[in-house]
Design a protein around this nucleic acid. Structure first.
Ligand code: FES
Ligand code: FES
Lengths: 160, 160
DNA sequence: TAAATAAAGGACAAAAATATCCGAAATCAT
DNA sequence: ATGATTTCGGATATTTTTGTCCTTTATTTA
């Protein structure tokens, strides 16, 4: 053991690509999309059971998506969250990420400079832009529909 | 204004790819590399002036890099941080990120599942792995040397 | 209309990341 | 040896993120 006191200050389990809030938001949206494709609304409880997330916290994130008109909510018995069927294919991952984490991850400078600029690039700019742009493209081209279908068919998992 | 009380809870200026600690670490390492190529040591003060970062916090991060033997330190007058010239080309960005943020960003599941698995993939797995692997490759193939040279030549900036 | 249900919203709590302060230890120059 | 300099290390403070609790509001059903 010995010197793990100071190290603890920096013992992060590992910084991830998206915030927890965003991870929950994406997962929740996929569940809502999947149920919506089946013509069903999904309640907060159902969602948190499916994605194994803290209820009240997830509620806040869902509200964020509702405010961004990415999903829609209905109160009262048999209420819950839904997405109009014809809209599910139009909702891109980028909109969800943007609503929760902002666009810095796929638009901002990799070293945190005020803005990414090709004329005044940071040292990693050239190399970073390539992967960042591919991330951007991926997020903008991936629809909730395809993610929901994979889940419905049993090919993918939300909970492990 | 009206409803910005609740919204404030979620007003992040935008989640970035790397943590602040990691951004400082990368920038600091580049400065140290650049000076080392000139046969000079760099003091903490010089570093924080170059990259415009909080001094004491940056010191902690530098210590982390020292412990990982990515950079070396010398105490006392004319002390500071340095990297042996012949090592500068061998230090890859991935080692720095790994030492500070861990490897989750270029190895972990995009939706935060316990581990990324192709046999039990999360809904974004297929699409995410592509960009994550490119990020991994980029980090593993980018050396401190090339980043430092770009800075030396005046092509890149650390401070804007 | 009343009761039950589910989301919305506010206040608060805990944990993690970011940041500051100060003294100790090492090193160098005189 | 002494004093100046600079990193190292511990304690603490601030801010942001994550998470909980409980009340209010809207909606449905009986
Ligand atoms: S300036 Fe840093 S990524 Fe473009
Ligand atoms: S399982 Fe989620 S990215 Fe591989």
């Amino acid at each position: 053991m010995s010197d793990n006191k100071i190290l603890l200050i920096f013992t992060s389990k590992g910084t991830e690509m998206f915030s927890k809030a965003c991870e929950y938001g994406i997962k929740a949206a996929i569940v809502v999309a999947q149920e919506s494709l089946n013509g069903q609304r999904t309640s907060l409880k159902d969602i948190t059971r499916e994605i194994n997330s803290p209820e009240a916290f997830t509620a806040k994130i869902l509200q964020l998506l509702v405010r961004s008109r990415i999903i829609y909510s209905v109160k009262g018995p048999h209420g819950g969250f839904e997405i109009p069927k014809n809209q599910i294919d139009e909702v891109k991952l980028s909109e969800i990420v943007d609503a929760i984490d902002g666009d810095a991850i796929y638009k901002g400078c990799g070293l945190g400079l005020s803005e990414c600029s090709a004329s005044q690039p940071c040292p990693v700019h050239d190399k970073f832009v390539k992967v960042r742009d591919e991330l951007k493209l991926m997020l903008e081209n991936t629809s909730l529909y395809e993610l929901a279908v994979g889940l419905e068919v049993g090919l993918t998992f939300l909970n492990r």
